Amino acid sequence: MQNSHSGVNQLGGVFVNGRPLPDSTRQKIVELAHSGARPCDISRILQVSNGCVSKILGRYYETGSIRPRAIGGSKPRVATPEVVSKIAQYKRECPSIFAWEIRDRLLSEGVCTNDNIPSVSSINRVLRNLASEKQQMGADGMYDKLRMLNGQTGSWGTRPGWYPGTSVPGQPTQDGCQQQEGGGENTNSISSNGEDSDEAQMRLQLKRKLQRNRTSFTQEQIEALEKEFERTHYPDVFARERLAAKIDLPEARIQVWFSNRRAKWRREEKLRNQRRQASNTPSHIPISSSFSTSVYQPIPQPTTPVSSFTSGSMLGRTDTALTNTYSALPPMPSFTMANNLPMQPPVPSQTSSYSCMLPTSPSVNGRSYDTYTPPHMQTHMNSQPMGTSGTTSTGLISPGVSVPVQVPGSEPDMSQYWPRLQ
Rank of each mutant, 00 (worst) to 15 (best):
G73L: 02
R105V: 07
P81W: 07
G36A: 02
V84Y: 05
S6D: 07
L130G: 10
P68W: 00
P76G: 01
S122Y: 00
K55E: 03
K55Y: 03
D104I: 12
E133D: 14
P20H: 02
E101N: 09
E82N: 12
D104T: 10
E82C: 09
A88R: 08
G64S: 03
V111I: 10
I102Q: 04
Q89Y: 09
I97H: 09
I87G: 02
A79F: 02
A79M: 13
G110H: 11
E109P: 05
R103C: 06
L149H: 14
F98Y: 13
N150T: 11
Y143V: 11
L32N: 02
G138V: 11
Y90H: 14
V120P: 15
A99E: 00
N3M: 11
V16Y: 14
Q47H: 05
V83N: 08
S35R: 14
V78H: 04
V48I: 09
G138T: 14
K134G: 11
R105G: 12
L127P: 00
S122P: 00
E101S: 08
E62M: 11
D104K: 10
C112W: 03
M148N: 11
P20V: 01
S119D: 00
G36C: 03
S35W: 10
G12I: 01
S119I: 01
K55G: 06
R69A: 06
E101D: 06
A79R: 04
N116D: 06
S121A: 05
D140R: 13
N9Y: 05
F98W: 08
I87M: 07
K75C: 04
L146T: 15
N150V: 03
R19L: 05
D144G: 09
T25N: 03
N124D: 02
S35Y: 11
I45V: 11
G12R: 03
G138D: 13
S4Y: 12
S121N: 00
N124E: 03
D104F: 14
L107M: 14
R59W: 05
Q135P: 09
E93F: 07
G73A: 03
R147A: 09
G141Q: 13
R105E: 08
A79C: 15
G36K: 04
Q47P: 00
T63S: 07
V120G: 09
E82V: 12
E109Q: 11
V16G: 03
P76A: 08
S119V: 03
I45K: 13
A37C: 14
S74P: 03
K28N: 08
S74I: 01
I71V: 14
L46E: 03
S96H: 13
Q10V: 07
E31A: 09
D41W: 05
D41L: 04
S85K: 13
K28M: 11
E101L: 08
K134M: 12
K91F: 00
Y143A: 13
V8C: 06
R103F: 02
A131C: 12
S85A: 12
E109K: 12
S132A: 12
V111A: 09
G7T: 12
N114Y: 09
V84N: 07
E101G: 08
I117M: 09
R77G: 03
S74A: 06
H5Y: 09
E101K: 13
I45H: 14
L11W: 06
G72V: 05
V48W: 00
N129T: 15
Y143F: 13
A79P: 01
P39H: 09
P68R: 02
Y60V: 02
Y60L: 01
L57P: 00
S122C: 05
D23L: 13
L32V: 01
S96F: 08
F98D: 01
H5R: 15
G51E: 05
K86S: 09
G110K: 14
V8Q: 06
D41C: 04
L130A: 14
Q10P: 02
R44P: 01
N129M: 07
K86Q: 08
L149C: 15
I87L: 08
S6I: 15
S49T: 15
V83L: 03
Y61C: 08
Q136A: 09
D23A: 12
I56W: 07
S85M: 10
A99Y: 04
G73V: 02
R69L: 12
N9D: 01
G138F: 14
H5D: 07
G138E: 11
D23T: 11
N3P: 13
C40I: 11
A33S: 11
R147M: 12
K28Y: 05
G13R: 09
I66N: 04
L57M: 07
N17D: 02
S6V: 15
E93N: 12
S43A: 07
A139Q: 15
E109C: 11
G7A: 12
E82D: 09
L21Y: 07
C40N: 05
G64I: 01
R59H: 06
K145R: 10
E82S: 10
P22F: 00
K145G: 12
R128S: 05
P68S: 05
P81R: 08
R59C: 01
Y90K: 07
K75Q: 05
T63K: 04
R44F: 05
I102K: 00
Y143D: 10
H34D: 07
L32D: 00
Q89F: 13
P22S: 05
G12C: 00
S54F: 04
N9H: 03
E82T: 15
D41T: 07
E133R: 15
G58I: 15
R67I: 05
D104E: 14
Q135S: 12
A99M: 03
I42A: 01
T113C: 13
P76L: 05
V111N: 10
K86R: 14
S132E: 07
L46K: 01
L127R: 15
R59M: 04
R147F: 12
T80C: 04
D23H: 10
S54R: 03
R69M: 11
C112A: 06
G58M: 14
M142P: 14
G18T: 00
R26H: 00
L130T: 12
D23G: 08
S6F: 15
D104S: 10
T63C: 06
V83A: 08
A88F: 08
Y143H: 13
V8Y: 06
V16A: 10
A99C: 05
R103K: 13
S132N: 14
S122N: 04
